[in-house]
Design a protein around this nucleic acid. Sequence first.
DNA 1: GCCGGAGGCGCC
DNA 2: AAAGGGCGCCTCCGGC
Length: 599
Amino acid sequence: MLACAPLADGRWAVRRLTDDGEPAGEPEVRPPGALGTDATGTPDERRLWASTPQEYPALLAAGQRVARCHDVAAVERILLGRAGAFGDPVTPAAVVARSRGEPVPAAPAGSSGPAAGTPTLFDLARAFDPDPVAAGGIPAAPGQAGPDREGDGRSGPGPSAVGPSGAGRSDAAGDPLELLRLAYRDQRRRAAGDGALALLLAAENAAALAAAELGAVGLPWRRSVHLAVLEQMLGARPALGGRPPRLVDLSREIDGAFGFAVNPDSAVELREAFRRVGFDIETTRSWVIKGIDHPAVGPVLAYKELARLHSANGWTWLDQWVRDDRFRAEYLSGAVVSGRWATRGGGALQIPRLLRQAVVADDGYRLVVADAAQLEPRVLAAISGDAALQAVSAARQDRADLYAGLAADGFGGNRASAKVAMLGAMYGQTTGEGGRLVRTLRARYPVAMGYVDAAARAGERGDVVASVLGRTCPPPGASWEAVRIGRQQDATAAERKRADRIAGDRGRFTRNFVVQASAADWAAVWLAGLRTALTAVPDAELVFFLHDELIVHAPAPVADEVAGLIERAAEDARRLVFPGSAVVTPVRPVIVDRYADAK
DNA sequence: GCCGGAGGCGCC
DNA sequence: AAAGGGCGCCTCCGGC
């Protein structure tokens, strides 16, 4: 294992460690181009660093890849969550301080990029040698902190919070490599003896690498195709800040239909307009407007759809996010409490179906698009141990279509009803058609339904729940005080109502969490396995990942091979995450030139 | 003028 | 078919 900490001058401090976290070499300084898999004798060697999204992009920019890593922040988020301490700082210094029962340094404000806290070469050298300059060692960079600089250099209120590490005492404070080493040892100790947790942490570390790589590689995106779509839907590109011709036309049509001027971009005005013509609506959501019988409805709905395209994925978006026919977003693998990924910039997880035609493989390449078929109900079957639901998931003829199996099993063959019922069960729906259909499901699959009901009740009590591999949900926040108040004997009706609402929200959250987070567990293991397998296929790259779906951009001759690897990785994930379960988690790789052709 | 919340909607 | 979970991001709007 190679502990890696960036220095202020763009180079890196590294030190080889054993898997136990014992030093196995002397500290050295390397350029980023000498940190990747190909740069060391042991390609598989793990990198130990503070945070993958913080450190890895610099290596990727230098053309380096890393096979495996231990991401202290990612691991710490999971371990802290299990200890009920969501949101505490996750830096190596914080991990070490907590392990010693010392005051925990606050997380650096706006901590990304080469922050003010990045140690200088001088800081590092000083940690090994009290007076490196005098000893003829590494000189301090000009303008950097002097020798009396304390702690990790974070600019915070008051004196350094790292603890009582006195001058002259040999200590980890200020030495990033030693902090990494000690943090690693502590995390290793806390995670010991739990196989599911080990799998979760391994998958999370791999996912973090994959997320950074996805961001660097980018999704193939044909600017010309996107431009053609915009032109066809919206008309010619308007001047900066102007509205495209199609929106101008529709706006006039809307005014005409109402008989007065309305700004359709304003929900307030739109609702008022419908009220003036006799329709007392609470919101102007599309599905509400759809139910109104008035000549303005058509143009309003068309306007909403096109305005959305224009503002979310229009010409400005294209200019901002697509370079050289690649859409590059920042993927954050650990950002959602359920374990799902988030993205920053470009809305990469919300690419509208309409624009999937712009995702086109390079010449000589294909896109291998794969999604897990109805992953969440299958995951529910596995985690609940519901034999009947597992049997439906694995039924031969409906193996790839769980809802068809469900439909045959209790919904008179009505697939749509079966789907609505299952989604209602997992989201906590109680009213309307979905709520009614859930009752059918409850009678048919009492074990599975009992499982999500129990999760909901735990949430309503204020308890936490966990995914199959042990990722925990956050505890209730400050609003839980209102629940406590509303449940007291002398609570007012309003207080009781508020308590019920908050507890109900919490119950729906925990009900969904056990399924969504366990599905994320499976997907992370799937992704991690595939990522490793793909290293054996030259020029095949993961270019997209969306909860239960991924895209590999691969040379045409190896596309079939990649499809096989995707299926094998899914089967491995099923076996690892749901050992002993009869559930199946089929994926459907499709080889296409355009993403839009995958479904 | 800045900022945060609300409304709305895209994806799973 | 209904409006129940998780997100990100846009515009509008009201408060300062």
